[in-house]
Amino acid sequence: MSTLIIGLSLSFLLFLLSAGLTLIFGMLGVINFAHGALYMLGAYVSYQIVQITGSFWLGLLFAPLIVAALGALIEIVALKRVYSRDHIFQLLLTFGLILVIDDATKLIWGFDYKQVPTPEMLTAPVALFGSQIPSYRLFVIAFGALVSLGLFLLLDRSKWGMIIRAASSDADMARTLGIDVNQVRTGVFALGSFLAALGGAITAPLVPIELGMGFSVIIDCFVVVIIGGLGNIRGAIFASLLLGMTRAVGFTYATEWVELLTFALLIGTLMFRPEGLFSYKGRSA
């Protein structure tokens, strides 16, 4: 039972991060290496807010907003200039962003581990089907499911979602219909940054907050995005569940096989279905 809970909570965390990554790729055509750094920043900023206000909830609310604003700034100042260039420039730029964000984090918060305490109302374990489940894990699942649902409603049902889908599939055609695609790109990068930081803020009570935390998680996100199909957000949710559950089951029953399984999944996808396991005609975003 606890394997299922850990797997689900891991899956939703992966989805928050890979949804942003895949949205950004679909809209901007940029593979954002700095996504993990934004996730880390989300955790550090929420730590800072918790330090100042004492409230986990304020951290969860404001850290993503602050990082989203930073994301918009990064898009306007830096990324905007390299869209028309070769992919290698975009990779170098987002890689450079990792170094800048990492060093800025070192300067501000130093090298020590930081910790965000689990909010008090979610510290008690809950008995579920005969197992004791940490209630914070259940909260992560519920919250992740809610955010995912909100994201799908935004993309599928709202005016903004319609604009994002149209501009992702044919930017020039969208422009002739009066849509300012440059603004949409800034907005999508901010949304992706928001989701990454939300992932960081909600993970903060579960793991030590440290400089390397973005790196390990971003690898898993790339695996999810590739298995789900680049730019395909529906694929990302299935791939997140697949990878999250695989990892949870692996850690419980065959710890030494987890990385092997993860990358076997990735390599298999790349070899046999490079368009992603869950791709279908026409991207959703």
Partner: peptide
């Protein structure tokens, strides 16, 4: 002016390959 600004002025474009948004 950019394409989006020209569109808002009152120019519309029906391209050769139709360019229907497939995901809408």
């Amino acid at each position: 002016l950019r394409a989006d600004q020209l569109g808002r002025l009152g120019i519309a474009y029906v391209p050769e390959d139709r360019r229907i948004f497939p995901n809408l």
